[in-house]
């Protein structure tokens, strides 16, 4: 029952930063087709760091909680640093590790953000 701790359920029911951002500088979408998880990330930035971000989407508790936590953690972070993030960051924020069946849910928002950052750099 480790996985469904209070924090994850609360963030699923009351996600933070879950809104569209019409004046975003860049947006990017990702999906786990097999689960039906979808996420769209909105980013505002200056020349080197993320100044604000939000997300929209639907999915399981893990994917929504992970997107909430990610959008909190990534505010003010250097664009260059985002690509260094990986599963261990997500596990730390969620307070639990994810097994092979659920890791894709947990990583969806992060991978979508990292893709967006790659686009910015190009």
């Amino acid at each position: 029952m480790n996985l469904y701790r209070e924090l994850i359920i609360d963030l699923y029911k009351n996600p933070v930063n879950k809104r569209s951002m019409p004046d975003a500088h860049i947006t990017n979408s990702g999906a786990n087709v097999t689960c039906g998880d979808r996420v769209r990330i909105y980013i505002k930035k200056d020349s080197e760091k993320i100044t604000d971000l939000s997300f929209e989407g639907e999915g399981c508790a893990i994917s929504i909680a992970a997107a909430s936590l990610l959008t909190e953690e990534a505010k003010g972070v250097l664009l260059n640093d985002i690509s260094d993030w990986g599963p261990h960051n997500i596990f730390e924020w969620l307070g639990t590790e994810l097994g092979p069946a659920r890791i894709k849910c947990g990583l969806l928002a992060l991978e979508t953000l990292q893709e967006a950052v790659k686009k910015i750099k190009q």
């Binding site: 399981c60 508790a61 069946a101």
Partner: peptide
């Protein structure tokens, strides 16, 4: 209001 994967995972417990 609950995703099928969450349901299956909790049932697995």
């Amino acid at each position: 209001g609950i995703h099928p994967h969450d349901i299956a995972e909790i049932l697995n417990e």
